[in-house]
Write a protein that binds this DNA or RNA. Structure first.
Length: 895
DNA sequence: GTGGTCACG
DNA sequence: ACGTACGTGACCACA
């Protein structure tokens, strides 16, 4: 036996795995095996290892009396009982994983896990070492002593509570650990088949033990105990003795093991990563991936042998290091900008990694603006110095805040990964590595997150993190680029998305001038309306309440006023506009609420929300267009969203008056595609009637009405046109009779008839809808005209809902996505045109089918000519594309 | 953090 | 029989 102070960690395998099984939500790996208990167990194990830092480690399992290894049956004391098959199937997985941790596991015929643990804890303590026991079983508390601590799992297995003799005394009315056995002897334990004494629960048992100390002494003085309790004690003395015996952990298991066999010096990262990957425990793999901080190279390893040079880094903080970096810049080809926060227009830079294939240089952000970084800044701005990175769009914006220019963006692994699978849930660098079977890095949250358990302290950790990111990007770049080629998305990436990223960053940096006074004035008007609506609503309700609370509103409308309640949401009454509109005829209050909703929406989101986003320095709003969010390939806009500024209702539309040109006398020019999605449909479906309609510049909704209702153009009234318009929307969205019936407030049958009429009138569309679904089933994905992909795994789901959703998506995505491709192309062309013609006009916004510019008056005629032309010619289809142009002194007027 | 609601294409 | 229109982002209330 060793003599050094040891920390022995003893884990009660059976009790933990059982608790984990019943506490964790179901979890299965891709081959259908249940893994929830293994996951829970592993989480717990990592946690206690972190906290206890044991030198010796053992997981004990029951044997002999209980085994889970056969056919899903557990042999308990006194019989066989069926265990859930999902639990028994997890035992082999668990044992394998414990092996991957390099932890010893024991089971001994004839003994239970707690006997083994009790014996080892005794031996450890006798030899002056400390032992910690982890279990879900309160019985274990009897083993606590000065040298032995018991950790009981809580909240399933996600937390542990620490029991020392003092803590046991505090929670159990002064009981010593040994008296836990006596407690069980008296009160029993139904879950463990220990009878105890009938009628004696925890309260009585604790009182008796306070008075008499032990079961034996209680029995000896049984005649002193009064009443029913006394009777039961006297008549069940044998049961009490037996119960105490059953509850007593046997601490004399004969064993000839040595401590060396239990010595544990940590897991082997390779082996463990392989084990975790097999179980598909992605989050745990990330958590485990620690660095050897401060060594200048990241440690650990995993999925793939790590080329060490990828992780060699140099902290740039003295003259010599700067000289080395400057000398190495011509070989640099990779840049990572680390920054705080989500909004790149207000995030502070943290540090920068610049990497050559041999090493990474880590520069703290403060140094970046200093004189020593002049050459580095020159390299960053050099169009000819090709750069690879991760989210270079964001990097460009962050750097721009310090006046630093980024150019030469050549390959962005985030953008590439988005094209390869735009619906991937985890687009983080860590997630990308995971899916490519590459050695992972801790997710950012682990390094910067508030409650991050595995947060790495100090500047070395930050540098290591950046170096690892740089290495990760380098390893990802090549396979991703190859996959783009193989998937036919080379042009889409290099000719469209990558150039667009730079154009978008330019638009965002430019921003759009927004008049705060105009918003404030409008806000005052809204406020008058809001207060008036609120007062009226409260008067009608006969009480004051928060109209903005759907809960309170539902109570007022449906309980107090007794209006007929319609749909329910999962939390209560539904009170959305659709429901309220049906209720309007019943009570005046309803319309007032609808008006209140409209006004408060405008006030909070568009007046207050936009005012907050106007930068005092330049009086502009700088949105952030995201290129890697929408599954269809559309852009999205954040901080604030400038793609959903009101237009449909006049009150809201006034908001647009606040968006003005940034220079006096200039104008806002807005150009929007006319019916781009239906034109795309005409093209990809090849439907002759639809194509002909667009070639003849027909009003497409009138044309649809004619064909669906079988009438002449003169006979189409506004109602027929309205319904036809809804049918066209339905077609684009992936039609269903139910959806259309809801939208038009007609029966499903009627909606179904409309659809049938439509599909008969446009047989090419019917063929497209069938073909695209078939294609999705065959390939597993659908594509746009430019080869953008979207995978639809649910297309083969047996669940009707999932499958139907996937089918509608299959029909819609090529249409919406191709329209997105086209306007993106138009943006690239426009950018080129503005540059080559040396125009001062600037592209400011994109709103899915619309481009917004600010234009000096002398360029107005030119722009009015070239913008719609470029948009129309961006991508030639079998039908003409058309863009309408409008001009005004603000965005409102450009209609 | 989640759900309900509503703004846009 | 199943119970949906497609794609987003922001705000508020409430746990």
């Amino acid at each position: 036996m060793e003599t050094d102070k040891q920390k022995v960690l003893l884990i009660d395998g059976n009790s933990i795995v059982n608790r984990a099984f019943y506490a964790m939500p179901p979890l299965t790996n891709s081959s259908g095996l249940h893994t929830n208990a293994v996951f829970g167990f592993t989480t717990m194990l990592l946690k206690v290892i972190e906290e206890e830092k044991p030198t010796h480690l053992l997981v004990a399992f029951d044997a002999g009396k209980i085994t889970f290894r056969h056919e899903g049956y557990a042999e308990y004391k006194g019989g066989r009982q069926k265990t859930p098959p999902e639990l028994s199937e997890q035992f082999p997985l668990l044992k394998e994983l414990i092996g991957a941790f390099s932890i010893r596991q024991f089971e001994l015929p004839g003994y239970e896990a707690d006997d083994i643990i009790g014996t080892l804890a005794r031996l450890a303590e006798e030899q002056g070492q400390t032992a910690t026991i982890v279990s879900g079983d309160k019985d274990m508390l009897q083993l606590a002593s000065d040298g032995v601590t018991v950790l009981l799992t809580r909240k399933g297995v996600s937390e542990v509570e620490r029991f020392t003799p003092d803590e046991i005394a505090r929670q159990y009315d002064g009981l010593t650990p040994n008296q836990i056995i006596d407690l069980k002897g008296l009160m029993g334990d139904t879950s463990d088949n220990i009878p105890g004494i009938p009628g004696i629960g925890p309260k009585t048992a604790l009182k008796l033990l306070a008075d008499y100390g032990t079961v034996e002494n209680v029995l000896e003085h049984a005649d002193e105990i009064k009443g029913k309790v006394g009777d039961n004690v006297r008549s069940h003395a044998d049961s009490a003795r037996m119960s105490k015996k059953l509850a007593t952990i046997f601490r004399e298991v004969p064993m000839d093991w040595t401590w060396e066999q239990l010595a544990w010096s940590g897991y082997e990262a390779d082996k463990l990563a392989a084990g975790l990957r097999k179980l598909e425990f992605k989050s745990l793999i990330e958590r485990l991936d620690l660095y050897a901080a401060g060594t200048g190279a990241a440690g650990g390893s995993g999925a793939e042998a790590e080329p060490a040079e990828l992780l060699v880094y140099q902290a740039v903080e003295n003259e010599a290091a700067w000289a080395k970096l400057n000398g190495d810049l011509q070989a640099a080809d990779l840049v990572i900008v680390e920054s705080h926060g989500d909004n790149p227009h207000q995030s502070e830079g943290i540090a920068l990694a610049v990497a050559t294939p041999e090493r990474s240089y880590i520069v703290s952000y403060e140094q970046l603006t200093g004189p020593e970084a002049a050459k580095l800044r020159e390299w960053l701005a050099d169009e000819g110095a090709a750069k690879t990175g991760y989210d270079l769009h964001r990097a460009e914006l962050v750097l721009a805040r310090s006046g630093i220019v980024l150019r030469g963006q050549q390959f962005d692994v985030q953008l590439a990964a988005y094209l390869l699978d735009p619906t991937e849930a985890d687009p983080s660098l860590a997630g990308l590595l995971q899916r490519h079977g590459l050695r992972t890095i801790p997710p950012d949250e682990a390094v910067y997150g508030k409650g991050a358990k595995f947060r790495l302290p100090g500047p070395d950790a930050l540098r290591a993190h950046l170096a690892a990111k740089a290495g990760a990007v380098r390893r990802l770049a090549k396979p991703l680029a190859e996959e783009l080629d193989e998937s036919g998305m080379r042009t889409l990436y290099y000719e469209l998305e990558q150039p667009l990223a730079v154009i978008l960053a330019g638009m965002e940096k430019l921003g759009i001038t927004t008049k705060a006074e105009a918003l404030e004035e409008l806000g005052k008007e809204f406020q008058v309306g809001i207060e008036s609506m609120m007062a009226s609503v409260h008067r009608h309700a006969g009480m004051e309440f928060n109209i903005g609370s759907t809960k309170q509103l539902g109570e007022v409308l449906f309980d107090k006023l007794g209006l007929p309640s319609g749909r329910k949401t999962k939390t209560g009454y539904s009170t959305d506009a659709e429901v309220l509109e049906r209720l309007a005829p019943y009570h005046e209050i309803v319309q007032l609420i609808l008006n209140y909703r409209t006004l408060t929406k405008l006030q909070s989101t568009y007046i207050e929300g936009l005012l907050k986003e106007i930068r005092p320095e330049d009086g502009k709003i700088h949105t952030f267009f995201r290129q890697t969010i929408a599954a269809t390939g559309r852009l999205s806009s954040q901080f604030p969203n400038l793609q959903n500024i009101p237009i449909r209702l006049e009150e809201g539309r006034q908001i647009r008056k606040a968006f003005v040109p940034s220079e006096a006398g200039w104008l806002i020019l807005a150009a929007d595609y006319s019916q781009i999605e239906l034109r795309v449909l005409a093209h990809i479906s090849g439907d002759e009637g639809l194509k002909e309609a667009f070639r003849n510049e027909m009003d497409i909704h009138t044309k649809t009405a004619m064909d669906v209702f079988g009438v002449t153009p003169e006979q189409v009234d506004s109602n027929m046109r309205r319904q036809a318009k809804a049918v066209n929307f339905g077609i684009v969205y992936g039609i269903s009779d139910y959806g259309l019936s809801q939208n038009l407030n007609i029966t499903r049958k009627e909606a179904g008839d409309f659809i049938e009429q439509y599909l008969s009138a446009f047989p090419g569309v019917r063929r497209y809808m069938d073909d695209i679904k078939e294609q999705a089933r065959r390939d597993g994905y659908v594509t746009t005209l430019l080869g953008r992909r979207r995978y639809l795994p649910d297309i083969k789901a047996s669940n009707f809902n999932l499958r139907s959703f996937a089918e509608r998506t299959a029909m819609n995505t090529p249409i919406q996505g191709t329209a997105a491709d086209i306007i993106k192309f138009a943006m690239v062309r426009m950018d080129e045109a503005l540059k080559s013609r040396k125009l001062r006009s600037r592209m400011l916004l994109q709103v899915h089918d619309e481009l917004v510019f600010e234009v000096p008056p002398e360029e107005l005629e030119t722009m009015k000519a070239i913008v719609p032309a470029i948009m129309a010619e961006a991508f030639p289809l079998d039908v003409p594309l058309k863009a309408d142009v409008n001009v005004g002194t603000n965005w409102y007027e450009a209609k």
